[in-house]
Structure formats: structure tokens, C-alpha cells
Nucleic acid binder design. Structure first.
Lengths: 146, 146
DNA sequence: CCTAATGTCTCTAGCAACTATAGCTTCAAG
DNA sequence: CTTGAAGCTATAGTTGCTAGAGACATTAGG
């Protein structure tokens, strides 16, 4: 049985994060030692590794919750799991497309900066006037962050 | 003079977001009508467009704050603005690299899902076992998992 | 066996960057 | 003059953690 610190180290997840996952019900309540410290076995370890890997792939905690509840029902069709993964793939592809456009605009901005005064700075100018920008970000509902 | 709703529509920014920007000092306090409603002129419109465009490019509000204060000093060197833009470009490039890796792993997961039962589902399996995954995310030092 | 240094406990609050709700007041159209 | 949309303030919620305070548990060294 591992204490929370060892588990975190093994899974690459910080201790407060593990407690947070328990709090929101992603991990079951851990067993406790006589001194009230959390103890984890192999099952908890695997579940945490699953969560972390899915987080690394950008799945939201909600999606992970769904995937975990699916993985508890091995006899059902995996269509739902497939759908979640496909949605995630679509999300990643759209972010990728947006980021690629962003990158080229930023590159143009940076290259054009001749190192003079602010008044002549292309960075400021391009940001101030959307029409100087080739790319169209008219209604991006998706976040650029994360 | 525009009301907040018109301004928001013109700039593609939601009304509560404009009030939020004012609250955190990104926009100056707006003039008010006799009935206490905010009124905006061309200068506010340009400033909001600048913010919006920079947000679209993924700049944080802090970076935008810096860029705005730079743009108010047209005689200074634009090295600082250039540095902010370069940092943003580096950030975008690193996200891009990560997302590209993510995309290929998700694609593999989805393609391999044969549409059977959860017990055989590659999506669940790959998520549960990091060693099934070629790409190495986020914790290269802790991941001797093999 | 005692002590000091970690590790763990709970609880609360904070971060970005908004978004939503409630309960008002003001404004423009008919 | 009335009605409905749009505005106002203030507060709280969102996601996925992270940081801090103050108290208890465990462990390594002397």
C-alpha cells in the first residue's frame, strides 16, 4: 500500500491533485491508515494512470469521468468511448488549425519588426488593425489556450 | 457615441466581457450618459479591437496590458513589444508540437477501435496503459514506464 | 526514547478569463 | 403610455488545479 506521496510520484501527479480528484469523485475515497492517512493499492494506481494519460491527451475531466464509467462496463459496446475519442480528436484538429494560422501571423509580425521605435512597430500596428492581418479570426468560439 | 451593446457587436466582444475589461483596468472607465449608461467613442473602439485581436492570437491579458502601455509611448524602442511577440510565438510553437503528437495518438486510438465491446476497446486500453503509447507526454523524466 | 524533519491532514482561498444570474433602471418603438 | 429590450450593479459559478495555514502522523538520526 502506498501513501499519497508515493502514489503521486509513481503516477506523475501532484499530491493536491490526487486529493482534488477524490473530492470531485474521479477517484473513490481512499482507504485510511490508523493515523488517517490515505492508502492506495494497485487498482487506484491504475485508475490514476488512466486519468493522467487522458488528461495528457487533453480530455476534460468530464470526458474522463465518462470514459471511466464506460471502462467499468466491459460488456457494453464501445461506441460511446469511440465517440468521446473522436470528439476529442476533432477538438484537437480544430485547435491545431487555429494555432497554425496564429503561428504564421505571429511570425510575420516578428519578422517585420525592424527594431525601431514603437511608432513604427509592426507588432503594435498589426494588433491594432485587423485588416492588416491575412487570417480571419472572425468568430472563434474555441480557446487558444491549453 | 456607441452604447455598450453596439460596441460589443462592432468589435465582436460580448457585453459582460467589455465590462470585465473595464473592471480590471484594461479599458478606461467609460463616459456615462445622463441615465448612467456607458458610452464609447472611436478611441475606445480601437483599443477594444486591439485587445480582441491580441486575444485571438492567444496573448494573455497581462501581455496585452504590457503591449497597450507600450503603444501609448510611440517614441520608445519597440524591443519590448518584439520580445512579447516572440515569447508568444515560442509558446504557440510549443503548443503546436504537443498538439501534433496528441493528434496522431488520438488518431491511432480511434482507428484501432473495431467497434466491438468495451473489453476489447483500444481507446480504453491505450488510455489505461501508457506503455501502449508511442509518444511521451509532459513527464519525460518520471516516465521510465517500459 | 526524544527530537527534528518531513509528510499528511482539513479547510479555505486564489489563478485566468470569462459567463451567468438576480433584481433593478433606462431607453426606444408603437 | 406601455411594453420589451437593453443597460446597470453585485455576486457567484466555471475548469483544473495550486498555494497557504495550522494541526497531526511518521520516520531517521542521535
Amino acid at each position: 500500500m502506498l501513501t499519497i506521496g508515493k502514489l503521486g510520484e509513481a503516477a506523475g501527479v501532484k499530491v493536491p491533485t490526487i486529493r482534488y480528484y477524490e473530492q470531485i469523485g474521479l477517484l473513490p475515497e481512499a482507504e485510511r491508515s490508523s493515523g488517517n492517512q490515505r492508502l492506495y493499492g494497485r487498482k487506484a494506481m491504475e485508475r490514476l494512470a488512466f486519468i493522467r494519460h487522458a488528461r495528457d491527451l487533453g480530455f476534460t475531466l468530464e470526458a474522463i469521468r465518462d470514459l471511466l464509467s464506460l471502462s467499468d462496463k466491459p460488456d457494453q459496446s464501445c461506441a460511446a468511448a469511440d465517440a468521446i475519442a473522436k470528439a476529442q480528436l476533432a477538438e484537437v484538429e480544430s485547435r491545431l488549425a487555429r494555432l497554425t494560422a496564429l503561428k504564421s501571423e505571429l511570425e510575420r509580425m516578428v519578422v517585420q519588426c525592424a527594431g525601431g521605435k514603437i511608432a513604427d512597430c509592426r507588432v503594435i500596428e498589426v494588433l491594432g488593425d485587423h485588416s492588416l492581418c491575412a487570417t480571419d479570426h472572425r468568430h472563434p468560439e474555441t480557446e487558444a489556450t491549453q
